[in-house]
Simulated assay, not measured.
Amino acid sequence: MDGRDLTMDRISDLPDSLITQILSLLTTKEAVCTCILSKRWTDLWTSVDTLDFDYRNFRYDNKRFLRFIHGVLSHRGFPPLEKFKLSWKFRSRSEHDTVEECINHVVACMPQVIYIITITHDFNFGLPDSLFNCGSVKEMSLFPCAKSITLKNASSLVTADFEISFDGLNELNLLQGLPNVTSLRLYATRHGLLDKDIPNCPILNNLKSLELGQLEMSYGWNLVACFLKHSPNLKKLVLNFGHSKLATQEAMLGNFTFRHEFLEIVEIRFKNESVETVNEVTATLGKLLLAVFCGIILLFSREKLYLFQFFLFGVVVSVALVI
């Protein structure tokens, strides 16, 4: 191998389609920076089917971040998108218009994957309606701060991950817009956010995996029962309970008296690690198993792991206790 071989630009010998695939693994800021390599690279980044905007890549300088987003969208135009990621911390109300413009632009590019995390203390902030009416998206993760979240028509959505933690949220209507979802994670850190949405959900025949949080021991089981009633083909259920004190077995189970024939795995995670909590949940497991007739139950907390098995209707049931 001579000196010329050592200095040869082998990457530039690759076809454009392969280079754009490599660029799609980078953040948008990193991909745009490749435009200075040569004339051939000047516009290659505009063919990348992924946009990844993260305010932390700009040392929390929102003005530079806003200018960058505007420049990228203006130069790129509207070719189809595979994935869109946005992480943004709002510092002033004037920035909301830029977010809405960005999301509306992206929705017009028909993305299949959307991941958005927004942080704001402005209770009047709302995500644009176009986001909740995007007919192309198959996978969506939203960690938004908004006054209302209403998913209107997302029949194409099969994987959904929603984490709601905004105290100013006054309307949450998600489940009616998820008729074909197969995997759903719904997490609300403010008590009562799930109460109105879950009982009104439609029959989710395609739902196979469900994670709920942050539930409360005093009433959480009734919400779970309601969800199971509307998810007849569910196979895996993950429950996250908060710090509240444990209720009696009767209160925990509520009307949880029907059998759920396809349910195979239940994971229960709780933050209250007292001996009383572990004993109470252990005593309740029998009733829970009778109610849902599942094959495997996993009960999680944090530190020590205990594993035991027993038979229920001829089925070997494994229980893992971490206390």
Rank of each mutant, 00 (worst) to 15 (best):
M1E: 14
L6G: 04
M8G: 04
I11A: 00
S12K: 00
L14P: 10
D16R: 13
S17W: 08
T20W: 04
T20V: 12
T28R: 02
K29D: 00
C33K: 11
I36D: 14
L37G: 03
S38E: 15
R40K: 15
W41R: 14
W41H: 14
D43L: 08
L44N: 04
S47T: 08
D52M: 00
R59P: 00
Y60T: 00
Y60H: 07
I69H: 07
I69L: 06
G77K: 12
P80R: 07
S87Y: 11
K89H: 12
F90W: 00
E95K: 10
H96N: 13
D97V: 07
E100T: 13
N104H: 10
N104L: 09
V106H: 15
Q112A: 01
V113L: 09
I114K: 03
I114N: 06
I117T: 07
T118D: 07
T118V: 11
T120P: 06
F125L: 03
G126L: 00
G135Q: 13
S136V: 07
V137A: 15
M140C: 04
M140K: 01
P144G: 06
C145A: 15
S148I: 03
S148R: 08
T150H: 08
L157D: 01
A160H: 02
F162R: 06
S165C: 15
F166A: 13
N173V: 05
N173K: 08
L174K: 10
N180R: 09
N180H: 13
V181P: 05
L184E: 04
R185S: 01
L186E: 02
Y187E: 04
A188W: 01
L193R: 05
D197I: 01
I198K: 01
I198A: 05
I203W: 05
I203H: 14
L204H: 11
L207F: 13
Q214W: 07
L215T: 02
E216L: 02
M217K: 05
M217R: 03
M217D: 05
S218K: 04
S218I: 04
S218P: 04
Y219V: 05
G220H: 11
W221M: 09
W221Y: 06
N222K: 15
F227G: 15
L228H: 13
K229D: 15
P232M: 07
P232Y: 13
N233V: 00
L234Y: 12
K235C: 10
S244R: 09
T248F: 08
E250N: 12
A251P: 03
A251F: 11
M252H: 11
L253Q: 11
G254F: 00
H260W: 10
E261S: 13
E264M: 02
E264H: 13
I268F: 07
K271S: 12
K271D: 11
N272K: 14
E273P: 01
V275H: 15
V278G: 01
N279V: 08
N279D: 14
N279E: 14
V281M: 04
V281D: 00
T282P: 00
T282Y: 09
T284G: 06
L285I: 07
L288V: 02
L290T: 03
V292G: 05
L298Q: 14
L299S: 03
F300N: 03
S301R: 02
K304H: 11
L307F: 02
F308H: 06
Q309Y: 09
Q309F: 06
F311A: 04
F313G: 10
V315F: 03
